[in-house]
Amino acid sequence: MSPTRRWPPAEAEAQALEARFGLRVAARLHAGAEEVPHDVSERLRVARLQAVARARQARQPVAAPVRQTAPSIQLVHVDPYSGTLQGTVAMLDGDDERDEAWWRRLGILALVVMMGMGLFGIDWWHTQEQIRTTAEIDAALLGDALPPAAYTDPGFTEFVASHPLATPAAAEAGPAQ
């Protein structure tokens, strides 16, 4: 604080003067606030109503499940003036909803499993088809008459000699002892 600064003789008087000045300024500001444009005041009013509505919703968390399951309440014949009975119904409704969610999850899981099994089955069928086709081709090749060039092939001759079953007579005689 500068020593050349002149201060009021009493601190209380200074505080009183400050308060009076502040209140006069506040009065002018208040008059200005009352002259806020209509669109601004309307937006403020809407904002206030929205805030109050949210506060009311936040205070009523139990009411929502009861409203959603109104048919089941009618079947149970709930007494609207008996808080205990309403609380019981709310709990039952909560269990039903939990069961329903569980069944929903189970259904989705079953669908996924069925899709997986279907994909596996398709793959298995394709594999079997390939095996069958290959076997048919091999059988056709093996059952078909040998081409003349096979008799002049030394490897084929060796194969026939080392595998007696390759000839029909040897196949009738059975495996060699």
């Binding site: 937006r43 904002a47 929205q50 936040a58």
Partner: peptide, 14 residues
């Protein structure tokens, strides 16, 4: 300012 005031009202109410 309107958005801020609205936000403050909602926070207070919630």
């Amino acid at each position: 300012a309107l958005d801020i005031v609205q936000d403050a009202m909602i926070r207070l109410a919630e």
